[in-house]
Amino acid sequence: MILRAESISKSFSDKKVLDDISVSLSEGELVCILGVSGIGKTTLFNILSGLLMPDSGRVILKGEDITGSTGHLSYMLQKDLLLEHKKVIDNVALPLVLKGMGKKEARQKAFEYFEKFSLTGTEYKYPAQLSGGMRQRASLLRTYMCGDEVALLDEPFSALDVRTRDSVRKWYLDVMDNIRLSTLFITHDIDEALLISDRIYVLGGTPAVIMDEIDTGGRKNRDPETGYPEDHTKLRQRILECFDPAST
Protein backbone atom coordinates (compact mmCIF):
# COMPACT_ATOMS: atom_id res chain seq x y z
CA MET A 1 0.00 0.00 0.00
CA ILE A 2 1.62 3.22 -1.12
CA LEU A 3 -1.16 5.79 -0.60
CA ARG A 4 -4.09 5.60 1.76
CA ALA A 5 -6.81 8.12 2.49
CA GLU A 6 -8.63 7.37 5.73
CA SER A 7 -12.25 8.47 6.24
CA ILE A 8 -11.95 11.89 4.64
CA SER A 9 -14.82 14.31 5.25
CA LYS A 10 -15.12 17.85 4.00
CA SER A 11 -17.78 20.56 4.11
CA PHE A 12 -17.92 23.95 2.43
CA SER A 13 -19.81 26.44 4.60
CA ASP A 14 -22.82 24.30 5.58
CA LYS A 15 -22.78 21.90 2.67
CA LYS A 16 -21.15 18.55 3.27
CA VAL A 17 -19.35 17.46 0.12
CA LEU A 18 -17.38 14.38 1.11
CA ASP A 19 -18.46 11.94 3.79
CA ASP A 20 -16.11 9.35 5.23
CA ILE A 21 -14.21 8.54 2.05
CA SER A 22 -11.46 5.94 2.24
CA VAL A 23 -9.40 4.95 -0.77
CA SER A 24 -6.13 3.11 -1.16
CA LEU A 25 -3.59 2.65 -3.89
CA SER A 26 -0.96 -0.06 -4.25
CA GLU A 27 2.34 0.26 -6.03
CA GLY A 28 2.07 0.30 -9.83
CA GLU A 29 -1.69 0.27 -9.67
CA LEU A 30 -4.04 2.48 -11.68
CA VAL A 31 -7.15 3.21 -9.67
CA CYS A 32 -10.08 5.23 -10.96
CA ILE A 33 -12.38 7.43 -8.95
CA LEU A 34 -15.57 7.47 -10.95
CA GLY A 35 -18.44 9.82 -10.38
CA VAL A 36 -20.75 12.25 -12.14
CA SER A 37 -19.66 15.87 -12.59
CA GLY A 38 -19.84 18.06 -9.50
CA ILE A 39 -19.79 15.15 -7.07
CA GLY A 40 -16.66 16.37 -5.27
CA LYS A 41 -13.98 14.34 -7.03
CA THR A 42 -11.78 17.38 -7.49
CA THR A 43 -12.24 18.37 -3.84
CA LEU A 44 -10.99 14.91 -2.90
CA PHE A 45 -7.94 15.38 -5.11
CA ASN A 46 -7.22 18.80 -3.67
CA ILE A 47 -7.25 17.20 -0.22
CA LEU A 48 -4.97 14.34 -1.31
CA SER A 49 -2.50 16.76 -2.90
CA GLY A 50 -2.46 18.90 0.24
CA LEU A 51 -4.02 22.01 -1.29
CA LEU A 52 -7.07 21.64 0.96
CA MET A 53 -7.33 20.56 4.58
CA PRO A 54 -10.02 17.92 5.25
CA ASP A 55 -12.41 18.48 8.17
CA SER A 56 -11.54 15.02 9.39
CA GLY A 57 -9.52 12.07 8.17
CA ARG A 58 -5.91 11.54 7.18
CA VAL A 59 -3.81 11.08 4.06
CA ILE A 60 -1.00 8.57 4.49
CA LEU A 61 1.82 8.20 1.99
CA LYS A 62 4.05 5.20 2.67
CA GLY A 63 3.23 5.28 6.37
CA GLU A 64 3.77 9.01 6.70
CA ASP A 65 0.96 11.43 7.48
CA ILE A 66 0.94 14.08 4.73
CA THR A 67 -2.49 15.60 5.41
CA GLY A 68 -2.54 19.24 4.29
CA SER A 69 1.03 19.31 3.07
CA THR A 70 1.87 19.81 -0.60
CA GLY A 71 4.70 18.56 -2.78
CA HIS A 72 4.37 14.81 -2.17
CA LEU A 73 2.12 13.77 -5.03
CA SER A 74 2.29 14.75 -8.69
CA TYR A 75 -0.84 16.48 -9.82
CA MET A 76 -2.37 16.94 -13.23
CA LEU A 77 -5.62 18.49 -14.36
CA GLN A 78 -7.90 18.38 -17.38
CA LYS A 79 -6.37 21.67 -18.51
CA ASP A 80 -2.77 21.00 -19.42
CA LEU A 81 -1.72 24.22 -17.62
CA LEU A 82 1.50 24.52 -19.56
CA LEU A 83 3.12 27.91 -19.09
CA GLU A 84 2.73 29.65 -22.45
CA HIS A 85 5.82 31.79 -21.91
CA LYS A 86 8.17 28.87 -21.39
CA LYS A 87 9.49 26.55 -24.07
CA VAL A 88 8.25 22.97 -23.80
CA ILE A 89 11.52 21.75 -22.33
CA ASP A 90 11.44 24.43 -19.63
CA ASN A 91 7.83 23.59 -18.85
CA VAL A 92 8.78 19.96 -18.42
CA ALA A 93 11.89 20.82 -16.38
CA LEU A 94 9.98 23.21 -14.12
CA PRO A 95 9.46 20.76 -11.23
CA LEU A 96 13.22 20.20 -11.13
CA VAL A 97 13.97 23.93 -11.25
CA LEU A 98 11.49 24.52 -8.44
CA LYS A 99 13.40 22.01 -6.36
CA GLY A 100 16.52 24.12 -6.83
CA MET A 101 18.22 22.42 -9.77
CA GLY A 102 20.09 24.64 -12.25
CA LYS A 103 18.32 25.40 -15.51
CA LYS A 104 20.92 23.68 -17.68
CA GLU A 105 21.02 20.50 -15.65
CA ALA A 106 17.22 20.40 -15.40
CA ARG A 107 16.93 20.77 -19.18
CA GLN A 108 19.40 17.94 -19.72
CA LYS A 109 17.49 15.68 -17.38
CA ALA A 110 14.14 16.53 -18.98
CA PHE A 111 15.56 16.05 -22.47
CA GLU A 112 16.17 12.34 -21.86
CA TYR A 113 12.44 11.65 -21.56
CA PHE A 114 11.20 13.40 -24.68
CA GLU A 115 11.54 10.28 -26.80
CA LYS A 116 9.77 8.05 -24.32
CA PHE A 117 6.86 10.50 -24.22
CA SER A 118 6.75 10.80 -28.04
CA LEU A 119 7.67 14.46 -27.90
CA THR A 120 10.93 14.41 -29.86
CA GLY A 121 11.39 17.63 -31.80
CA THR A 122 9.13 19.75 -29.64
CA GLU A 123 11.75 20.60 -27.01
CA TYR A 124 12.40 24.18 -28.07
CA LYS A 125 8.92 25.04 -29.28
CA TYR A 126 6.39 27.03 -27.31
CA PRO A 127 3.23 25.26 -26.06
CA ALA A 128 1.12 27.30 -28.52
CA GLN A 129 2.88 25.49 -31.36
CA LEU A 130 1.81 22.03 -30.15
CA SER A 131 -1.35 20.04 -30.87
CA GLY A 132 -3.78 19.21 -28.08
CA GLY A 133 -2.49 15.66 -27.76
CA MET A 134 1.13 16.78 -27.68
CA ARG A 135 0.34 19.39 -25.04
CA GLN A 136 -1.29 16.79 -22.84
CA ARG A 137 1.70 14.45 -23.24
CA ALA A 138 4.02 17.31 -22.33
CA SER A 139 1.87 17.99 -19.28
CA LEU A 140 2.10 14.29 -18.35
CA LEU A 141 5.84 14.39 -18.73
CA ARG A 142 5.99 17.42 -16.45
CA THR A 143 3.86 15.51 -13.93
CA TYR A 144 6.27 12.61 -14.21
CA MET A 145 9.27 14.93 -13.73
CA CYS A 146 7.93 15.84 -10.31
CA GLY A 147 9.55 12.53 -9.41
CA ASP A 148 6.84 11.43 -7.00
CA GLU A 149 5.79 7.83 -6.87
CA VAL A 150 2.11 8.64 -7.00
CA ALA A 151 0.38 10.67 -9.70
CA LEU A 152 -3.04 12.24 -9.29
CA LEU A 153 -4.72 12.77 -12.65
CA ASP A 154 -7.94 14.78 -12.73
CA GLU A 155 -9.77 13.98 -15.99
CA PRO A 156 -6.56 14.45 -17.93
CA PHE A 157 -7.95 13.34 -21.29
CA SER A 158 -11.46 14.75 -21.25
CA ALA A 159 -10.57 17.99 -23.03
CA LEU A 160 -9.15 16.11 -26.03
CA ASP A 161 -11.17 15.12 -29.08
CA VAL A 162 -12.24 11.47 -29.27
CA ARG A 163 -9.54 10.19 -31.63
CA THR A 164 -6.70 11.97 -29.89
CA ARG A 165 -8.05 10.79 -26.56
CA ASP A 166 -7.98 7.13 -27.62
CA SER A 167 -4.39 7.35 -28.81
CA VAL A 168 -3.14 9.34 -25.82
CA ARG A 169 -4.89 6.92 -23.47
CA LYS A 170 -3.37 3.87 -25.16
CA TRP A 171 -0.01 5.57 -25.12
CA TYR A 172 -0.39 6.38 -21.43
CA LEU A 173 -1.02 2.76 -20.51
CA ASP A 174 2.17 1.76 -22.36
CA VAL A 175 4.19 4.41 -20.57
CA MET A 176 2.67 3.37 -17.26
CA ASP A 177 3.89 -0.16 -17.76
CA ASN A 178 7.32 1.19 -18.56
CA ILE A 179 7.77 3.49 -15.62
CA ARG A 180 5.53 1.73 -13.10
CA LEU A 181 3.88 4.85 -11.82
CA SER A 182 1.07 4.45 -9.29
CA THR A 183 -1.87 6.49 -10.47
CA LEU A 184 -5.11 7.74 -8.99
CA PHE A 185 -7.31 8.79 -11.87
CA ILE A 186 -10.48 10.88 -11.76
CA THR A 187 -13.05 10.43 -14.48
CA HIS A 188 -16.77 10.71 -15.11
CA ASP A 189 -16.51 8.39 -18.12
CA ILE A 190 -17.51 4.81 -17.27
CA ASP A 191 -15.91 3.33 -20.37
CA GLU A 192 -12.67 5.18 -19.75
CA ALA A 193 -12.61 3.82 -16.20
CA LEU A 194 -13.21 0.27 -17.45
CA LEU A 195 -10.55 0.63 -20.13
CA ILE A 196 -7.66 1.79 -18.04
CA SER A 197 -8.09 0.91 -14.40
CA ASP A 198 -7.15 -1.99 -12.17
CA ARG A 199 -9.75 -0.96 -9.63
CA ILE A 200 -12.63 1.50 -9.62
CA TYR A 201 -14.13 3.42 -6.72
CA VAL A 202 -17.62 4.58 -7.57
CA LEU A 203 -18.47 7.86 -5.90
CA GLY A 204 -22.10 8.92 -5.53
CA GLY A 205 -24.73 10.68 -3.45
CA THR A 206 -24.77 14.01 -1.60
CA PRO A 207 -22.55 14.19 0.32
CA ALA A 208 -20.46 11.85 -1.75
CA VAL A 209 -19.68 8.43 -0.35
CA ILE A 210 -17.98 5.39 -1.88
CA MET A 211 -20.92 3.43 -3.31
CA ASP A 212 -18.95 0.52 -4.70
CA GLU A 213 -15.46 -0.78 -5.27
CA ILE A 214 -14.94 -2.79 -8.42
CA ASP A 215 -11.98 -4.96 -9.29
CA THR A 216 -11.60 -5.08 -13.05
CA GLY A 217 -9.10 -7.89 -12.81
CA GLY A 218 -6.07 -5.83 -13.72
CA ARG A 219 -4.67 -5.10 -17.13
CA LYS A 220 -4.07 -8.77 -17.89
CA ASN A 221 -7.79 -9.42 -17.81
CA ARG A 222 -8.40 -7.42 -20.99
CA ASP A 223 -9.92 -8.40 -24.27
CA PRO A 224 -7.01 -7.81 -26.70
CA GLU A 225 -9.48 -6.67 -29.37
CA THR A 226 -11.44 -3.99 -27.52
CA GLY A 227 -9.21 -3.36 -24.51
CA TYR A 228 -12.17 -3.83 -22.15
CA PRO A 229 -12.29 -6.34 -19.28
CA GLU A 230 -13.87 -9.68 -20.23
CA ASP A 231 -17.03 -9.02 -18.24
CA HIS A 232 -17.28 -5.33 -18.99
CA THR A 233 -21.01 -5.30 -19.83
CA LYS A 234 -21.80 -6.69 -16.41
CA LEU A 235 -19.45 -4.25 -14.71
CA ARG A 236 -20.92 -1.32 -16.63
CA GLN A 237 -24.41 -2.34 -15.50
CA ARG A 238 -23.21 -2.53 -11.91
CA ILE A 239 -21.79 0.99 -12.09
CA LEU A 240 -24.91 2.39 -13.72
CA GLU A 241 -26.98 0.94 -10.89
CA CYS A 242 -24.79 2.78 -8.41
CA PHE A 243 -25.36 6.06 -10.20
CA ASP A 244 -29.09 5.66 -10.53
CA PRO A 245 -30.50 2.93 -8.29
CA ALA A 246 -34.10 3.86 -9.17
CA SER A 247 -33.74 2.76 -12.79
CA THR A 248 -33.51 -0.95 -12.00
Binding site: G71, Y75, L81, C146
Partner: peptide
Protein backbone atom coordinates in the same frame (compact mmCIF):
# COMPACT_ATOMS: atom_id res chain seq x y z
CA UNK B 1 -3.56 34.35 -13.79
CA UNK B 2 -5.49 31.07 -13.79
CA UNK B 3 -5.91 30.02 -10.13
CA UNK B 4 -5.52 26.38 -11.22
CA UNK B 5 -2.07 27.29 -12.47
CA UNK B 6 -1.20 28.72 -9.06
CA UNK B 7 -2.59 25.60 -7.37
CA UNK B 8 -0.48 23.40 -9.63
CA UNK B 9 2.63 25.36 -8.70
CA UNK B 10 1.70 25.05 -5.04
CA UNK B 11 1.19 21.32 -5.45
CA UNK B 12 4.74 21.25 -6.84
CA UNK B 13 5.78 22.89 -3.58
CA UNK B 14 6.72 26.21 -5.18
Amino acid sequence: IDPDQINLMRAMKA
